[in-house]
Amino acid sequence: MEIEHLTWIGFIFLTGNSAMAIYRSKDDFYNISFVIVAYLSLLLLFWCLRSFERAGRNAPQRPCLKAYVWSLSTLLTCMFSYKVAAIMPWPVDLVVWGLGLSVVIGGFYVFFLYRDGNY
């Protein structure tokens, strides 16, 4: 199966799950907003990643795309950390936020500070 087909299958699966989550939360504006923002953020993230991969090594839009990818990844990490931490006891809550913070800081380091010649 080609990668293009797998991409469309993943997109359809994500869209279907998002639609089901919105339907199940039809009376809860906060949950609907969360699902919509997460869905749109994921779509933007995938689009930015694809654009980043297709851009040439010295393309002028490449640094901007890196910033978009990191920002969207940070947004999604914070959103999901908040949702998970809300249902956990406080010691696990601290672990969840600590792991989320380490992912955000590690992503910033890899995208913007680390230089090995590949990015």
Rank of each mutant, 00 (worst) to 15 (best):
W97E: 05
P63D: 05
A38E: 11
W90R: 05
V96C: 02
F11C: 12
L45V: 06
D27T: 08
D27V: 09
W90Y: 14
F11K: 11
F13S: 11
I32F: 10
A55E: 08
G56L: 07
A59P: 03
F80T: 08
D116G: 08
T77N: 05
Y109T: 04
A55N: 03
F13N: 10
Y68D: 07
L43V: 07
F108S: 02
L45G: 06
L99W: 07
G56I: 01
A67G: 10
L101F: 03
V96P: 02
Y119G: 13
N58V: 10
R54V: 10
W8E: 11
G106R: 05
F29A: 15
G106W: 06
C48M: 12
E53Y: 13
F29L: 15
G56A: 04
I12R: 00
D27W: 09
G117S: 03
K26G: 03
I22E: 10
V35G: 04
S102M: 10
L14E: 06
G98M: 07
R54P: 01
E53G: 15
M1N: 10
F34Q: 03
K83V: 07
V110L: 15
K26E: 07
K26Y: 11
N118A: 14
L94S: 09
Y82F: 12
G100P: 04
E53H: 12
R115Q: 12
L44F: 13
M1H: 13
C64W: 14
V69W: 01
G16Y: 00
I12T: 07
C64A: 15
I12L: 15
I105Y: 04
V92Q: 11
L44P: 06
A85S: 10
F29R: 14
L40H: 02
G100V: 03
R24N: 12
S71H: 09
V110I: 12
A38W: 03
R115C: 08
K66H: 05
A85E: 01
R54I: 06
Y119L: 15
